[in-house]
Design a binder for these strands. Sequence first.
DNA 1: CTGTTAGCGCTTTCAG
DNA 2: CTGAAAGCGCTAACAG
Lengths: 337, 337
Amino acid sequence: MTNVNLKHLAKELNLAVSTVSRALRDSYDIGEETKRKVMALAKKLNYEPNPYASSLRKQKSRTIAVIIPEIANNFFSLAINGIEEIAQEKGYHVLIYITHEDYNKELSIMRYLQNGRVDGVLMSVSSNTDDIEHIINLKQRNVPIVFFDRICENVETAKITTDDYESGFKATEHLIQQGCTNIAYLCISKHLSIGNKRMHGYLDAIKKYKLRSPQTNIVFGSNNHEENYNKVKKLLSAKNRPDGIFASVEKLALTAYHAAHELDIHIPKQLKIISFANLETAPLLKPSLTTITQPAFEIGKRAAMTLFRSLDKKNAPIINETIILNATLIPRESTRK
Amino acid sequence: MTNVNLKHLAKELNLAVSTVSRALRDSYDIGEETKRKVMALAKKLNYEPNPYASSLRKQKSRTIAVIIPEIANNFFSLAINGIEEIAQEKGYHVLIYITHEDYNKELSIMRYLQNGRVDGVLMSVSSNTDDIEHIINLKQRNVPIVFFDRICENVETAKITTDDYESGFKATEHLIQQGCTNIAYLCISKHLSIGNKRMHGYLDAIKKYKLRSPQTNIVFGSNNHEENYNKVKKLLSAKNRPDGIFASVEKLALTAYHAAHELDIHIPKQLKIISFANLETAPLLKPSLTTITQPAFEIGKRAAMTLFRSLDKKNAPIINETIILNATLIPRESTRK
DNA sequence: CTGTTAGCGCTTTCAG
DNA sequence: CTGAAAGCGCTAACAG
């Protein structure tokens, strides 16, 4: 870190450090002549202010954190893309943290953030987070939080989500219209808002169309892939096994695929699958999967914009509101044209 | 930022700030009794040191930057996953920057990093980066850089790559073994190391099997999707159009798919495609694409480990070495079993 | 318009 | 074993 700093510039120009500092930003207050000289030298020496000194002084880091459960998943990648774009526009830096669906990791990550490291947090909670103390804690330390996708209902802050209930309803309806009469629902965790909302949509569609849905048709998965696989396999091995599956996340759709394949159940003839999924490659590579695609990039952007709105204005509080963006159902037929 | 800091703790305990500071880390030097008291209060008040004050003082940020051209791409998502895992293990924070294949963005990002914001950088260069001054610049400011995947040959530092030449050779050979005699190669940029190495593998395979390959069979794409699409369409519209395509990146494979589809060329009957791709969902969703899959997660981990090796030991210089990991060819047949 | 001064919160000599 | 004091690089209040 052998680096040029304000002191260097000041000495070289026979000016006070503060003058140089102001010339470099304030502007209105410093003579044109001086400003030009300072700017010139700064450019010449490739001066870049030390961010941490400035953060320490201003108590603002111009940095936000993004906390997500996983990243090798198109939804979150796209969301980050949107977040990063807005952040770059606003001159903010983005720290990324992956919880790997681990509540304890989420906890310790949020501890790190509580002392000024970031000005705000964008997060999608881990699937086994049912306690919200750590989140409230951070909020109380004046770190604004915006949830996206996997929200916490009972934290008062901005939330950007998809129309999960409606999408769940439509997904189920879609399967029914395809002739399914025995539809199962797969989701990752009882704790997740998205899973529950989608489930309610599913249940209401079942009800509306007067289908029966045995309790066993709802599978709650976990972090453990093996376990999920066995549960789904069991589901598909039953005498009256489902002829349609609505998976609340892509990963479970794939689990179902694998299981069906092993059990020699033909997709989509004997089993139709619909799933929330953000396969960028979808139009070409998923001939047999109907997807419900979330506007991930947009969600990321909106989440970031919402956060920055409160950061830009001097600590304007984040409004406790939910912005709901619509997902799109992309039937597999259309993928073949 | 109403926050508890060392001064608070010190006052509360009737100790000097320095004593508290040391009790919280140094340990050997402070009385057991005092230490316990300090620790207890720190825990109770949920004390978390201000990272920027400490960074400023120690001239170390415990933060690294990851600079990548894009993120909505499985390769980079997986790599980040690996990077983040190692970083978390080491107690480092990860800043993420996306260049969107834009040289100018890459430039300005690296400017931000030159004054202590990060202790090191992991990067995959943008496709239109042919000038390396900004990289050298950063290196000279004592910010170690490790390249992964898209490396810069002529910067002396550690590089983690895939066996691009061999994979290019094998990919081409694979198409030849499938009966292709007129194979085209698609890549994104003349500047990229990976594209060039893969191309050499391709050319050597063509040579070895004594196929002819008209110059027109090599397509250099760009950032512009439309443009790429037209180039590929033109390629596939020629009288003696190729019967095999080796795409150096997933995106171009998809472009080829689209073009073939529009021109009513059947895949894989009339045109076989092989491509570098990291489709996590591959086993199920890509019935017609043979892929060469890079160990992305591993690459990320190795890159991070290499960087941390030099950060952990007091500024041990990064060795100018290239670590080459092997990609795996996954034929489409095996996806159907 | 410019300089002086006093910190931001932490670490680290240097003294006791 | 503990305290006092200096200073990382920057900003901002206060003087001139």
